[in-house]
């Protein structure tokens, strides 16, 4: 039975964040403390002062532009930096957890798009959870109105998150982003560090299967079939499901597919329950994530798929007429 104190956790966390140990003694100390803390050590009931969720996750926010131009879309980037071994959640938390809440307040006339979520990691449990350890940048698309009669605009961002290790804690923080409005021909660039962060995390956003030649997703009875070419050293693909009320992919999640001769094939059994759709359209959606056996890190890019599911008799029918349209990649001419 380990009763790890918050102080010990902090010490281990500090050591784990060092890029290089200071000395062999430091190495040995790190080894000893790491062993004692048992990697997934809890914030136990005996901790004198457990950390708060805000202590465990650093956040910052910045815009993808140095100035707002009327009618030109940009992104608000929200960076989360988790203490070692703690994680926050993807848009589908999985078997447990809760996705972070990003509440961006914009001036009148500005339009906000859906949050863009980079490909998450898998955290095992009674049913797998999906989320981010270490660091992630979530992106919020913003489109300004075509006309802006002010010199500056400000955006208030309220963040709230659930951060978990063995136990879970809440955190929240506010950020304010202020930007000048520019109507001139040239806008100064954002900082290099912000530019690098954007490039890094944009590369981790999923690609739609529609953009991939010779790739496609279809329904065969109560199974989702996804296949296509794969250009990486991956030897397996995993399916990370979206939260789609009324449609549940098989558990244990994630379902795994195979790769053979440069192509992947994923076959996901589905449970279709129209009574649980909560009034929305039935659909199946998620990510096909290439992985290399033995590695914890995912490979990019992952592939996003989404298919509507017909209700009633059409679903159980096997006639071509009743089948939902498959989703295919490639250009329109290639599809013909």
């Amino acid at each position: 039975m380990f009763k790890t104190t918050a102080r010990w956790l902090d010490t281990v966390d500090s050591l784990m964040t060092l890029s290089k140990p200071a000395s062999p003694i430091g190495l040995l100390l790190g080894l000893f403390l790491t062993a004692c803390a048992c990697f997934d050590a809890p914030v136990s009931a005996q901790d004198p002062k457990p950390p708060s969720g805000a202590d465990l996750v650093g956040t910052s926010a910045f815009a993808s532009v140095a100035a707002v131009r009327p009618g030109e879309p940009f992104q608000v980037a929200v960076r989360y930096r988790m203490k070692p071994h703690w994680h926050i959640y993807w848009k589908n938390a999985g078997g447990s957890g809760q996705p972070p809440i990003l509440d961006l307040k914009v001036p009148e006339g500005f339009v906000i798009g859906p949050v863009q979520w980079p490909t998450p990691e898998v955290f095992p449990g009674a049913d797998a959870s999906y989320g981010y350890a270490g660091e992630v940048v979530l992106l919020i698309p913003v489109t300004p109105p075509d006309r802006l009669d002010v010199d500056r605009v400000s955006f208030k961002l309220d963040l709230e998150w659930l951060v978990c290790r063995r136990v879970c804690l809440f955190g929240n923080r506010e950020h304010l982003i202020e930007l000048p409005v520019s109507t001139g021909a040239e806008v100064p660039p954002i900082s290099e560090s912000h530019q690098r962060l954007l490039e890094h995390w944009r590369a981790r956003l999923p690609r739609s299967i529609r953009t991939i030649k010779d790739a496609g997703a279809r329904l065969e009875g109560d199974r989702l079939i996804v296949e296509g070419p794969i250009e990486s050293e991956a030897d397996v693909v995993w399916f990370y499901p979206d939260d789609t009320p009324g449609v549940s992919p098989a558990i244990p999640s994630p379902v795994k597919g195979r790769i053979d001769a440069g192509r992947f094939l994923l076959d996901v059994p589905l449970t279709i329950s129209p009574e649980n759709a909560l009034g929305g359209p039935l659909r199946v959606a998620g990510l096909v994530v290439p992985r290399k056996t033995g590695r914890s890190s995912i490979m990019i890019p992952s592939i996003a798929i989404e298919l509507p599911i017909p209700v009633g008799d059409a679903f159980s029918s096997t006639t071509d007429q009743d089948k939902p349209p498959p989703v295919r990649g490639g250009t329109p001419s290639e599809r013909r």
Binding site: S96, C164, R166, D243, S273, E275, N276, A277
Partner: peptide, 17 residues
């Protein structure tokens, strides 16, 4: 009557077996 929905995805902290 019929219960509907019969299942909605749960949220919260994970249960460990």
């Amino acid at each position: 009557g019929t219960v509907e929905p019969t299942y909605v995805k749960q949220w919260g902290c994970g249960v460990r077996y």
